[in-house]
Design a protein around this nucleic acid. Sequence first.
DNA 1: CGTGAAACAGACCGACC
DNA 2: GGTCGGTCTGTTTCACG
Lengths: 155, 155
Amino acid sequence: MTDIDATDCRILAILQRDSSVSMEELSEQVNLSRNACWRRVKNMEAAGVIRGHAAILDAEKLGCGLAALVFIRAANHDPDWLEKFRRAVATIPHVVEAYRMSGDLDYMLKVQVADMRAYDRFYQKLIRTVPLADVSASFVMEEIKENRGLPLEPV
Amino acid sequence: MTDIDATDCRILAILQRDSSVSMEELSEQVNLSRNACWRRVKNMEAAGVIRGHAAILDAEKLGCGLAALVFIRAANHDPDWLEKFRRAVATIPHVVEAYRMSGDLDYMLKVQVADMRAYDRFYQKLIRTVPLADVSASFVMEEIKENRGLPLEPV
DNA sequence: CGTGAAACAGACCGACC
DNA sequence: GGTCGGTCTGTTTCACG
């Protein structure tokens, strides 16, 4: 596997912000020839460093402008419950992200819905599907920093 | 502004998962001619429904495989503090997302770092920069559902 | 909205220094 | 890594039904 140098990082930083740039522009910005730049990009795609490309959509304009963080404590920890929980999370499209966490909260979901009413519908649906010991939600009032991708500066 | 119909939604669903598809493939998948499909995409880009394109990178391979959620209560709520906090959040690249929340937690950050030691460095840096009343972190043990984009169907 | 066709840009990929 | 130059796919616009 190729290891990532500073130039690769610059390429990645650009691409994770805007992958619609042409090779021409990209190579100029990192001071490489078009071909050298292209080879680096291809290498990183092959290595899986670049996993893919996605269109970034506007939540507001698509009618799901309310984001909620849902903190969950499991009712029990048997594999059967876990399986059901996972399935629910995978199935419901409004669950945008789901994490199993350390500490005393078991799971956190990020949920994207139209409004409070929609959230409540989601909530009812969730607890109908999976028994949950403790659920609490907090709503996103303001996005201070939106996902700009991974930190690529050497720490 | 164009309103989004079911076909548009199908286009968006495909693009937010993989925007590297060609117009040819995309149009086939939604049963439109290449041209008609292209017009829809351009319209949605112009309308800002499609905000851009991004490369999806592999956190593990880029040495920031540890994600933490940081829950913060502000030391005080004067505008001066807020300004400082915002600046810190915007500046530190390891803060991947930041939200002002409802309820009794004020802010939540998602932080992406190499490991625990790196997290501690981040933490020290943060509290050195901004006074914080209460900070607690929880670490992502497992990503159950990774960001697959917005839900494109009603609840 | 569909078709076809034409013009063009840019990706892609060899060979070579 | 740079350069050259080629092919070829895909985008972008036509005009028209």
